[in-house]
Amino acid sequence: MSAPAGGPSAGPRLTALDRAPRADAHERDENYQPVFVNARRKELDELLTRYPTKMAALLPALWIVQEERGWVSEPAMAEVAAVLGLTPAYVKGVVTFYTMYHQHPVGKYFVQVCTTSPCNVCGAEDVVRAFLKQTGASDLGATSPDGRFTVIEVECLGACGFATPVMINNEFLESVSADRVPSIVGALK
């Protein structure tokens, strides 16, 4: 795949990766072990007391899965469906609707770079390029060979006054420029 340089938007490329056939056993999550056991089960049970129906707890239940496994595989959708009394098809519809649920494994560090208009004007695309170069990820949405990094473009992170904001997992970094990227990535390696 070509480098993202000058690409107008990450949308189409991310789409292609999202739809890639789940070729290997890892992507199919063949050795899936249930998430909702012991402490996670307790967490879910506590969660369910705060919602009027089991169905209403679907989004937070999926967040638990993603927190635990880093992504939401098809077997995970089936498990969530079973514990909440839904059908797997319904859960899959919800998971695929929200872009923040990962349908494929991502790196240990999930890097989201804001490339919306103001950041773009302030050089966000250089930041994206720098992250790809430093992490070794081949393309937006792809995971680096060492399995540690996945870089994507993201729509407005709500910090236009501090372009370019970057989110790495739950950490929020402001005013990131291309020359700061090597030290950021280096600290995580």
Partner: peptide, 16 residues
């Protein structure tokens, strides 16, 4: 057993 998978211009009818 049917759902709407994905959204926007990517949306399709899907199943598990």
């Amino acid at each position: 057993v049917l759902n709407v998978s994905e959204r926007g211009d990517r949306a399709v009818i899907g199943k598990f």
